[in-house]
Design a protein around this nucleic acid. Structure first.
Length: 647
RNA sequence: GCCGACGUAGCUCAGUGGUAGAGCAACUGAUUCGUAAUCAGUAGGUCGUCAGUUCAAUCCUGACCGUCGGCACCA
């Protein structure tokens, strides 16, 4: 006699076990038509699932956000059926719903190409139009293995063999096609709808392991309706428009070339952006009680052996040898061991802790060729690195301070939102379990004190300690992992760092490895995409251009520019013989935030006509006023309060 | 590193087994024109590199380098 509680709190009683479909019909024909699946005591299941005990039920309709995952999962199945219909002999493996869509991995000698898409998509639409019901079947494990083996589906057979013994083996049919699947599915293939599109092909290792064979993966996107699909495709166009590689080239910020793969050639304009960011951060760190240092690029392998990096990361280090000396040096891939060397000079007292040692550390890592990506993933980069040497008791307060600093830095760069991931011990790690217990507990406690909410990211910690990862969200909704805070009890031990405690005993400090931007190269890539090249004034590489209307105004234009330069602004002058329309267009396309137009009128009245990027309005105002206003506006955010107070 | 695609002028791209074109940018000249393209002309490429096939290769084949999309990696 199941009693079914609905979301509005009402209860429906049935005399016998009842299918969700029947419950929906009992509530009303509208719901019966709209329901795609249901949540049974919070778990998403097929609508046809028979309910034989008291339960709460929420029906999932197309309007429900949960419908997306169902649509995408079902679309993956439809894709698999279409592919097997068109390319006999192709083996199916797995095909989950993912963010924004789905994929399916196939085993086939010849990989798919985008040219195959039109045929596959057409077949998929046929399958959707056929509106075949999804039907769940429970199978005996051995029978299922035999079934797939006989069909030559050895990947599926392997999946079943590796399922835990207690797991129920379920297969789903959709018309004549059948597949191993945990479910749930919607009612029919027709529920997938038409708002889907195949996007790209890619290789992917079987079960994500690089020692396994490579499968051919097809990615697709799927949405509840055409409007959502269009919005997603528009977002992709927008991302392409903002691509830092394109903007970097167009605006002349930097370039990369074959002779230095993974290293950035910063051009004058890009370097101005870089320096603005660096100067800003240096001020913030100074104010936050960090001491900046600079450590060697080339360091003997002995130090990397002592730190444990040699063993784990040797293949990813650039090695340097000299002919006359029989020693191996490595270009530093990170700064921490060097910072410990500074800490170890002389005897440290507990009075010096927490000691915050910062470095804009230039590092080199031999990243796999396939990992390189513009200036976002490079082999030569500069971390905004720092190590906080402290006691265990200081972990929590230092975490609080750090999170505050990080949040305010992100805000100043235009990122209002970020979230935190907590990565705990990985399978391969240094340090014993007791140490890890302490480190993780300390970090958890620190989060509680700082009021930081986080998602757990199991097994993803550094080899020496657990870490927090700070993920910011950009203007078009993409996530970027930038900041990090890592608790390390291991490295101080390995490199023998110690301090004299209050009781006169020698103790090990804890090291907090932390970064806010991560690396300048990557962060500036993100900033470029965040603003699509239209930087706020304080970051803009060219902050203003003075453009003349007639050559009679040339001398005055130079004078205006000189005055702005004296006020610290980056200004260029355009006295070219183009018409003002062309000049406005050129500088607007170059994303110069401010255009000061001067003609005879302005030269005589000693005014400027000020025009903002993107705006159509212009404002004529006295030179002195424009100067004061732009200087104030170009002040970096951390100096703004004091600048206002002084004015 | 693995799978796939790609590499032609500064940029975006077209093209062919008989040693290459467009638009924009650049340069030159004319135009002095008040808020997103003035006109005309000129110049610019060992078609990623190295081999091979061929009478002949930018085009076909192979290797390598790099880039792009994923996968794997990310101290």
């Amino acid at each position: 006699m199941p009693a079914i509680t609905l979301p509005d709190g009402s209860v429906r009683r049935f005399d016998a076990p009842v299918a969700g479909t029947t419950v929906a019909e009992a509530i009303g024909p509208g719901l019966a038509r709209a329901a795609l699946a249901m949540k049974l005591d919070g778990r998403l299941v097929d609508l046809a699932t028979v309910i034989d005990r008291d339960a709460s039920v929420v029906f999932v309709t197309r309007r429900d956000p949960d419908a997306l995952a169902l649509i995408r999962h079902d679309a993956a199945h439809v894709l698999a059926e279409a592919v097997q219909a068109l390319y006999p002999g192709t083996q199916v493996t797995i095909g989950p719903a993912i963010e924004n869509g789905f994929y399916y991995d196939f085993a086939r000698n010849e990989p798919f190409t985008p040219e195959d898409f039109p045929a596959i998509e057409a077949k998929m639409r046929e399958i959707v139009a056929a509106n075949a019901p999804f039907a769940r079947q429970v199978w005996d494990r051995d029978a299922a293995i035999d079934f797939f083996e006989e069909r030559g589906e050895r990947f599926k057979a392997e999946l079943i063999r590796d399922l835990p013994a207690h797991e129920t083996i379920t297969l789903y049919t959709q018309g004549a096609w059948i597949d191993l699947c945990r479910g749930p599915h919607m009612r029919t293939t027709g529920d997938v709808g038409s708002a889907f599109k195949l996007m790209k092909v890619a290789g992917a290792y079987w079960r994500g392991d690089h020692r396994n064979p490579m499968l051919s993966r097809i990615y697709g996107t799927a949405w509840r309706d055409q409007k959502e699909l269009d919005a997603y495709l528009t977002m992709l166009d927008e991302a392409e428009r903002r691509d830092h590689r394109r903007i970097g080239k167009d605006m002349g910020l930097f370039h990369l070339q074959e002779e230095a793969p993974g290293s950035v050639f910063w051009h004058p304009k890009g370097w101005r952006l870089y320096r603005a960011a660096e100067a800003y951060l240096r001020r913030r760190l100074d104010a936050a009680g960090y001491q900046e240092v600079r450590t060697p690029q080339l360091v003997d392998r002995a130090l990397w052996e002592a730190s444990g990096h040699w063993e784990k990361f040797r293949e990813h280090m650039f090695i340097a040898r000299v002919e006359d000396e029989d020693r191996v040096l490595a270009l530093k891939p990170m700064n921490c061991p060097c910072h410990v060397q500074i800490f170890r000079q002389g005897v440290r007292s507990y009075r010096e802790l927490p000691l915050r040692m910062a470095e804009f550390g230039s590092c080199h890592r031999y990243e796999p060729s396939g990992a390189l990506h513009g200036i976002m993933r490079v082999r030569a980069f500069t971390q905004d690195d720092a190590h906080i040497f402290c006691t265990e008791a200081q972990i929590a307060p230092e975490t609080v301070r750090f999170v505050e600093l990080l949040a305010s830095v992100y805000r100043d760069f235009g990122f209002a939102e970020f979230r935190v991931k907590f990565s705990d011990r990985p399978a391969v790690r240094a340090g014993d379990d007791a140490t890890w217990d302490r480190a993780e507990a300390a970090l958890r406690e620190a989060c509680a004190t700082a009021g930081v909410e986080y998602d757990l990211n199991p097994g993803e910690g550094a080899f020496y300690g657990p870490k927090l990862e700070f993920v910011l969200r950009d203007a078009i909704g993409r996530d970027w992992q930038c900041g990090t805070l890592q608790v390390d009890f291991v490295l101080p031990e390995r490199l023998d760092a110690e301090f004299v405690a209050e009781d006169g005993a020698r103790r090990r400090p804890v090291m907090l490895h932390r970064a806010i931007l991560g690396s300048f190269e990557r962060f500036l890539g993100i900033v470029i995409e965040q603003y699509a090249g239209r930087f706020p004034l304080w970051l803009a590489p060219v902050q203003a251009v003075v453009a003349t209307i007639v050559s009679d105004a040339d001398a005055y234009a130079e004078e205006v520019a000189a005055a702005l330069r004296a006020a610290g602004l980056a200004v260029t002058v355009d006295t070219g013989r183009e018409k003002i329309n062309a000049k406005i267009r050129d500088h607007s396309l170059a994303h110069v935030p401010v255009i000061l137009v001067v003609g005879r009128r302005e030269a005589e009245a000693r005014t400027v006509a000020l025009r903002r990027l993107g705006g159509e309005a212009q404002e004529v105002l006295p030179l002195a006023e424009a100067l004061a206003r732009l200087a104030a506006e170009a002040t970096p955010p951390d100096l703004r309060e004091t600048a206002m107070a002084a004015a």
